[in-house]
Design a protein around this nucleic acid. Structure first.
Length: 200
DNA sequence: TAATGGATGTTCT
DNA sequence: GAACATCCATTAT
């Protein structure tokens, strides 16, 4: 299985996000492989994207988003969870793709141990659950996923129908439909409804 | 089955 | 001090 090269990631975030569907995310721990097929992603960019961490410019936390493409951007959110992104775009331009859900392939027993007794379909469904299942945390922030032996992507192609929607859990930037998912795949996280019902 | 809110810590205003 | 790229248990329908 080959890996996408640097140039795969050095493109616009939404393009990379769509093409990551069907690829395999691999996490190596103590020589064992935990992996799964990417079934849900979200694209984030920089100054044009008000939902992005990089919208207000470079800070200590989001510096990785401005660097070379193909690196891991891991951040801690909501006091509880880590989220895993892969940086995109040309160096100097901010961009990243958030990995939201995997369909588990290898290391299922380890993932179950990491997550506790939950439904198989939910083991790596949702960005916080995904990082917990694969034991990804801040120590991997900045990791070069093109060269890393601990965390990387293997080439794959998704041939099914691609669903598109607004991004989950963001309050700004709703004009961009930059969430991509494998249509009908039970491992995709449902997220919040796109339009919460409000009384008039 | 759908909606609500608490846990929890980092970042930015 | 407020907001936040979340998750899940609890409550209401």
């Amino acid at each position: 299985m080959s890996r996408p090269g640097r140039s795969f990631y050095e493109r616009r975030s939404p393009t990379v996000a769509r093409e990551l569907l069907g690829c395999r995310l691999v996490r190596v721990i103590d020589g064992g492989r935990l992996s799964g097929t990417v079934v849900e992603t979200e694209a984030y960019r920089g100054q044009w994207d008000p939902a992005s961490h990089a919208f207000r410019g470079r800070t200590e936390r989001n510096a990785v988003m401005f660097g070379q493409a193909g690196h891991a951007y891991v951040y801690f959110t909501m006091g509880m969870h880590h989220c895993l992104n892969i940086t995109t775009e040309q160096e100097g331009t901010a961009g990243a793709v958030l990995l939201r859900a995997l369909e588990p392939l290898e290391g299922l027993e380890s993932m179950k141990r990491n997550r506790g007794p939950v439904d198989l379909h939910k083991i790596a469904s949702g960005p916080g659950n995904l990082t917990k299942a694969l034991e990804v945390d801040g120590a991997l922030n900045g990791e070069d996923m093109v060269r890393s032996s601990e965390l990387f992507v293997e080439q794959g192609k998704y041939l099914g129908e691609v669903g598109v929607s607004t991004r989950v859990g963001v309050t700004a930037g709703k004009t961009f439909e930059w969430r991509f998912y494998a249509e009908g795949n039970p491992f995709v996280s449902k997220g919040k409804p796109a339009l919460p019902s409000k009384n008039p």
